[in-house]
Design a protein around this nucleic acid. Structure first.
Length: 767
RNA sequence: GGGCGAUUAGCUCAGCUGGUCAGAGCGCUUCGUUUACACCGAAGAUGUCAGAGGUUCGAAUCCUCUAUCGCCCACCA
């Protein structure tokens, strides 16, 4: 019969097996039957380098779900892709250039973007190679990239549609400026770091009646009001009064206002309001129609104040102002406090709130949803993006798993503000807006009477931005001379939000879109529930009137064996390719899903992967044992007996021994349990069940029993048939988890004419 | 400040809708060179399931509180 090596050596087979799968064409749903469609769009890895174990985890989970459904006869699509990851990729390339002593401004925009594209292309190739190494059964013929031409068309179309509906607008607002990265970023790209700070309490000037407290005295140059609680007996009498003071050489006009939001218990109970340099103060400023006085520029330097303050970094100016307060005897108190400082996730720069002209997506503005398949929102009725995002989860149309993330999702939506979608970086989707004249650089632009009256030149004011004839918003560039495209690019999550349908051909009404959208499952990390999952819901709801996916499966983060985050600096990174080389892909895959719960972080030790390699080897040797106990001339008989086993759930064969009956029962229980678990995404349960069945019930008990049974001529054929019967089922059941070793063994059985199906990929899932 | 989650064998964790749920992997101890596998097999040790109340015929599993840890969100200047 067929000879097997004593041990399974994964590296000997994996590459060939994967190539055979590709050649079979079965990763492409066009080559499958007309079963019920099943689709997963792969969360596109960033083209910033190579894959880590986190990627290996999501590839494994998605591949398990995909292979399971394909074997069940569903018309299965798993569509792969990569993400241009605007800021992340740009800064990566900038770092590389810096090492070469080159700055991006030396290259110019066009040349720089070309460099980034080259880097992205190489990175993409690496990533594709790794995804293949992991055994992903994706349809490469449909591979997408967030910045390729079809996706660009989708982005421009989406922008245009939302602009026409008044959801995308351009406005001069206080935004999160990253002085290090020189771009605006959204609320979600901010991370708060707790730091020690000094809270200073002082008066602007000796004749000012109220003391205020702040950790940032330098911003007080931009104060235009002092807010107190309207019921505060200490200050009530001042509300409505206005004062002119000289503060550190700067003339300030301060109005005393009553604000419910001011806490009388904190500090002096009075808040110096700096509308231009604080998100909160900006809101107060809006409510009270206060002037916005900008005193800090894009480089975090002061644009006002006396000598020693103006043109200085904010931190230097702070010292200077405190010094001045001391010398003027205005400083009343200094105390140490803990403070949350907003920093940019990517660059680490400290966020400087600034008023700037940017593009926003309005999440609260009502619009009419023309064609709706959203439960609870009828076609032609009004809704808002926020309501839409909430509704699809409330109604249960989208099911999030594990379900406690529902609460997190709602919590985020409740706190959601308009999304700033423009970025001052070069790499990305250029905003599809053109201006008749070159837009002015807005550095240092002040929001005051002057600027509103025209010093912005071409820059539109909030109110009339929508209908300015000098501006053109379109899918393609406008005809005629003298048009200049907006310099900014879009937040990478804008294009990512379109991912479930831009990958399927939208805005064209393609067969793919019709067949596979809404997609069946979105499988991704819980850490990007807000960034991405919510944005996809928003975009799909708005543009298609559909949910983007029926199920959301959130996986946890992979940590090291000591439960620490993996990072280069800790040197505890587990490289999936190393593991594949050492233990084989199947071992890595099984280790990643074995004994882990969805949505929970998991520790991964190399020992665990090693252990799972042993499991693959066990399977190998089980097959080896069975093959050595079947001779070629027995095959026909064995197959005919095995066929009988297949045809009835509980064979009434009176020759069956107790051991035979037991294992057959255990098999049907295992089949039922595994299918059930996979149906509800309990992958770890399914993995555990299979492990137990294969090793404990089949190998340790039944196979041991067969060593005697097979000597008995009465039982021999039966025993051989049952061994084969169980083995075939195990290979099928285990295939989604360990695709390589199961396929190798399947092919061996095929050589021995023990199975007919050409490949396990489309073998029938056991029932 | 608000929210979410965790606390189960030495380590890492699984235990879905309460009743073979006290488990798995790794590690550990002893024994075993039987032609599937030493990447193995057999036998074995370790846990008042964080603590305190409560619901129940019955709770690791549901409720309340407490403690510790982790994460997310947030404008206390």
């Amino acid at each position: 019969m067929i000879e097997l090596d004593k041990a399974y050596e994964a590296s000997k087979y994996e590459a060939d097996i994967y190539q055979n799968w590709l050649d079979s064409g079965y990763f492409n749903p066009d080559n499958l039957g007309d079963g019920e469609p099943f689709s997963i769009i792969m969360p596109p890895p960033n083209v910033t380098g190579t894959l880590h174990v986190g990627h290996a985890l999501f590839v494994t989970i998605q591949d398990i779900l995909t292979r399971f459904r394909r074997m069940q006869g569903r018309k299965t699509l798993w569509l792969p892709g990569t993400d241009h990851a605007a800021i992340a990729t740009q800064s990566k390339v900038e770092k590389i250039l810096t090492k070469e002593g080159v700055r991006k401004t030396d290259l110019g925009r066009e040349e720089f973007v070309k460099r980034v594209e080259t880097f992205a292309a190489e990175s993409r190739d690496t990533i594709v190679g790794q995804i293949k190494a992991l055994g992903a059964s994706v349809d490469w013929s449909r591979e997408a990239y967030t910045l390729d031409e079809p996706r660009s068309l989708a982005v421009r179309t989406a922008f245009k549609n939302m602009y026409d509906d008044g959801l995308i607008y351009r406005a001069h607002k206080v935004i999160n400026w990253d002085p290090k990265g020189q771009t605006v970023i959204s609320d979600d790209e901010i991370v708060h770091e707790e730091r020690e700070a000094t809270l200073y309490t002082f008066k602007y000037s000796a004749d000012f009646p109220i003391s205020i407290s702040t950790t940032r005295p330098e911003t007080k140059i931009g104060d235009t009001a002092v807010a107190v609680h309207p019921e505060d007996a200490r200050y009530k009498q001042f509300i409505g009064q206005e004062f002119d003071v000289t503060f550190a050489g700067e003339q300030l006009h301060i109005k005393i206002i009553g604000e419910e939001s001011v806490d009388p218990e904190f500090g002096t109970g009075a808040l110096g309001v700096t509308p231009a340099h604080s998100q909160v103060d900006a809101e107060i400023g809006e409510r009270h129609k206060l002037p916005f006085k900008q005193v800090i520029n894009e480089f975090a330097k002061m644009t006002a104040g006396q000598e020693g303050v103006i043109d200085q970094k904010t931190t230097v100016a702070r010292e200077a102002i405190v010094e001045w307060l001391r010398s003027e005897n205005l400083l009343e108190r200094e105390e140490s406090v803990k403070q949350n400082v907003a920093t940019a996730e990517r660059s680490g720069g400290i966020i400087e709130p600034l008023p700037k002209l940017q593009w926003f997506l309005d999440v609260n503005k009502p619009f009419t949803l023309k064609k709706s398949q959203i439960e609870g929102i009828d076609s032609g009725t009004e809704t808002t993006l926020k309501e839409l995002m909430r509704q699809v989860v409330t109604s249960g149309q989208i099911k999030i798993f594990p379900d406690h993330f529902n609460k997190t999702y709602f919590h985020w939506i409740d706190n959601l503000r308009d999304w700033c979608i423009s970025r001052q970086i070069w790499f990305g989707h250029r905003i599809p807006v053109w201006y008749k004249t070159t837009p002015v650089i807005l550095s240092g632009a002040k929001r005051n009477e002057e600027s509103d009256n025209g010093s912005f030149a071409n820059a539109q004011d909030d109110s009339d931005a929508q209908d300015d004839s000098n501006m053109y918003v379109g899918i393609e560039a406008p005809e005629g001379e003298g048009w200049t495209q907006d310099e900014d690019t879009l937040d990478t999550w804008f294009s990512s939000g379109l991912w479930t349908f831009s990958t399927l051909g939208w805005p064209n009404e393609t067969p793919d879109l019709k067949t596979f959208h809404p997609t069946t499952v979105m499988e991704t990390g819980y850490d990007i529930l807000f960034f991405w999952v919510a944005r996809m819901v928003l975009m799909s709801g708005y543009h298609l009137g559909q949910i983007p996916f029926e199920h959301v499966y959130l996986h946890g983060l992979i940590r090291d064996s000591k439960n620490q985050k993996m990072s280069k600096s800790l040197g505890n990174i587990i490289d999936p390719l190393d593991m594949i080389e050492k233990y084989g892909t199947d071992a890595l895959r099984f280790a990643l899903v074995f004994n882990t719960a969805p949505g929970t972080d998991t520790a991964l030790a190399e020992d665990k992967i090693k252990g799972m390699k042993h499991f693959g080897n066990k399977l190998w040797n089980i097959t080896r044992y069975i093959l050595t106990n079947i001779s070629a001339d027995e095959v026909a008989v064995i197959l005919s007996v095995a066929k009988d086993l297949d045809s009835s759930a509980s064979p009434q064969n009176d020759k069956l021994t107790k051991a035979d009956q037991l294992i057959l029962n255990q098999l049907s229980e295992t089949i039922e349990s595994v299918s059930k678990s996979l149906n509800v995404f309990r992958i770890h349960d399914a993995a555990q069940t299979l492990y137990e069945f294969v090793w404990k019930e089949f190998a340790d008990v039944y196979i041991e029993a067969t060593k005697e049974q097979i000597q008995n001529e009465n039982q021999k054929a039966n025993t051989q048939a049952i061994l084969l019967h169980i083995l075939l089922h195990i290979l099928k059941l285990l295939h989604p988890f360990m695709p390589f070793v199961t396929e190798v063994l399947w092919q061996k059985l095929r050589e021995g004419k023990l199975v007919e199906d050409k490949t396990l990929i489309i073998a029938n899932w056991p029932k």
